[in-house]
Design a protein around this nucleic acid. Sequence first.
DNA 1: CGATAAACTGAATGACCATTCAGATGCCGT
DNA 2: ACGGCATCTGAATGGTCATTCAGTTTATCG
Lengths: 217, 217
Amino acid sequence: MAIAAEDVKAPSGRRERILRAAIDVIRERGFAGTRVSDIAERAGTSQGLVLYHFGSLAEALSTSLTLLEDEFYTELDEELSLAEGPIDRLWHMAELASGYGPAVGDWRLWLELWARAMHDDDARQARESLDRRWRAALLTVIVEGVAAGDFVVADPARASLRLAALMDGLAIQLALEDPGMTRATFTDLWWEAAVLELQISDPKRHKLPRKRARNRA
Amino acid sequence: MAIAAEDVKAPSGRRERILRAAIDVIRERGFAGTRVSDIAERAGTSQGLVLYHFGSLAEALSTSLTLLEDEFYTELDEELSLAEGPIDRLWHMAELASGYGPAVGDWRLWLELWARAMHDDDARQARESLDRRWRAALLTVIVEGVAAGDFVVADPARASLRLAALMDGLAIQLALEDPGMTRATFTDLWWEAAVLELQISDPKRHKLPRKRARNRA
DNA sequence: CGATAAACTGAATGACCATTCAGATGCCGT
DNA sequence: ACGGCATCTGAATGGTCATTCAGTTTATCG
């Protein structure tokens, strides 16, 4: 069950623990395969409590999406605040997407979300705002880079759209563990495209990847 | 129900009708939401028959994936045989992917397949071979183009990988009906990337899209 | 024309799960 | 220490399917 000793009794902590458990289960078994009992078991509680807190399974899943959004935003902001210039920021985004943090590059979850977005409205909204946010960040970086003279792009909007889409596409292979697609290949292929698309003049130092740090699960 | 008058009694046709019905339902309701009764209703038969032919729902779904593969291959081969040179072929592939035919550009189905591939082995294999096939075709076109002097690429394998991934990424927006992503935008953005990546010298005439022809459903 | 098998049906059967519920347990202010 | 409220539990309850089955229709072929 894997319950940290810390706050076994904290009454409020229970709610969030359930949401985290839900996310973990979704990642493993998919939205469709996630049952109340899975969540309860993973969270170390009873089924009853899950329903007590969220009323229904559907509601629990939706709410966990909200938590996911929060983590995503936090992670993105945090990471971007660390970077110095546009080139560095862009590189950081590539790393994030390749799976550096717990949320942004959690592609199995994204594939699930995409599929669910076609049939569930909460999922649709969640993925839409997550995606919008990500693309906006990318666009901002590109615009900054153009202003700073680091990038040369005719149409930043198009460029960001395309680079974002390329990430998604590469991510599919990553999530499905396609032979030949690794974290390294991902960043490599994407960075090359970015260099080409944005006409980055001096992409030198960025070739060295950072230390690893995988998902909590 | 929508049963064509043609072969209501054809005994063998029934099987395939069921498979097509299954695919239709999957596209609409997703793998997870597809019930035996949905398929039966859509095919205009009884639940019993679906199970009679395929033994189980899971088996019916798997088998329908095989039919999908067949259609995909047929469509791809047909389309490629029509095109003249590498540039034209490449353009045809872009059109196919944008949803020109019934199978290749049926992106809702692809999103479903990706998600299912994470949990179901038949789906995993299906998507893998479909994807491999598609990328191989792309690679072939690129290599031909290089040989013919139409394209200039350092590493055709990387280029095809990237262009294929870009398609997938753009396709997600298409499937999810992201505002701002249409068939036209899709081909437009992709073609521009291809021109850049492959250094296509003379992409002129291809800017005009062909007549529409959507999915049967 | 039978007769045998294949195709087909619709009504059980039973498993699996979300949800409900009656009550236990801990918490907090007084 | 006590009343009351939030939290929590585990065992019903009931609905929704996949699957089974007993039997009917349709095709095939000698």
